[in-house]
């Protein structure tokens, strides 16, 4: 591989027409269970009083943060961040504990009702690696959803943000360095796209402060015991086996 990639979504709310083709494309690509979705189009409106109205549509999905809290929260390492920036889930390693769902300040994760595992936008990495765009981006009629490599100056995302102000959906309290760059302030739909400070659930606190150390200690003890026994045996030497 040549240069290291730095994948990002660039979203232009001014171009979103709320047609929801992206939502269906994502559902079809991933066979997401009914009632759940990996991506959203938030709407604020209409705002104002007749006849002076406005309405903004804000596409959103997992932001593949540079400081992903979900990765920290995951007790098994199933959620991980790739070098190219994508935050992915190893389904086999996922135990479905749901700690990452709680940890995400954007509510971008959910527990898949069919698999029981954590689920979220994976930026259609299999399409991207085959040279295609993520399903939502490929089908976007308005051209509101873009995806690509920020390290490549010729990529659609690099060209889209060139010379433009970009907005990250962050607050003073929460900054996970999301890799979604909005071309206009998503503040219009602030409630939906602003990150909410996470409050660890008791299970997570318990896991990290009690269970995990205990398990680690137990594993260490078991290994240590085995090692001791082995060394002991080594020094002691082996007894001849005697038939009764």
């Amino acid at each position: 591989m040549a240069e290291k990639k730095r994948y990002a979504f660039v979203i232009d709310p001014a171009r979103c027409i709320d047609c929801r083709a992206c939502l269906v494309a994502c559902r079809a690509e991933w066979n997401t269970p009914a009632g759940q979705t990996r991506i959203w189009v938030h709407s604020d409106g209409p705002q104002g009083v007749f006849p002076n109205l406005s309405q903004t549509f804000i596409p959103a999905q997992c932001h593949h943060c540079e400081d992903p809290w979900c990765v920290d929260a995951c007790p098994t390492g199933a959620t991980f961040k790739r070098e190219d920036g994508l935050v992915l889930i190893d389904e086999e390693a996922c135990i479905g504990c749901g700690l990452c769902v709680n940890a995400c300040p954007y509510q971008a994760r959910f527990r898949n009702t069919v698999t029981g595992k954590a689920d979220k936008c994976s930026a259609c990495f299999h399409r991207v690696e085959a040279g295609e765009m993520p399903a939502c981006v490929a089908t976007c009629i308005g051209g509101a959803r873009l995806f690509g490599d920020l390290n490549d100056p010729e990529s659609t995302v690099s060209r889209a943000i060139a010379g433009r102000a970009v907005y990250r959906p962050i607050t003073n309290e929460v900054n996970t360095q999301p890799m979604t760059l909005y071309l206009s302030s998503p503040a219009a739909a602030a409630v939906q796209v602003s990150p909410q400070p996470r409050e660890p659930v008791p299970a997570e606190t318990f896991w990290h402060t009690v269970a995990l150390p205990v398990v680690k200690a137990a594993v260490a003890l078991a290994f240590g015991g085995q090692a001791l026994a082995f060394i002991f045996q080594l020094f002691k030497g082996e007894n001849e086996y005697e038939e009764a």
Partner: peptide
């Protein structure tokens, strides 16, 4: 095309369609 560490350790996570 995973990060090298990941690729060595895991080959069984869910691929896309």
């Amino acid at each position: 095309d995973l990060t090298p560490a990941r690729a060595q350790g895991t080959t069984h996570f869910l691929p896309g369609p």
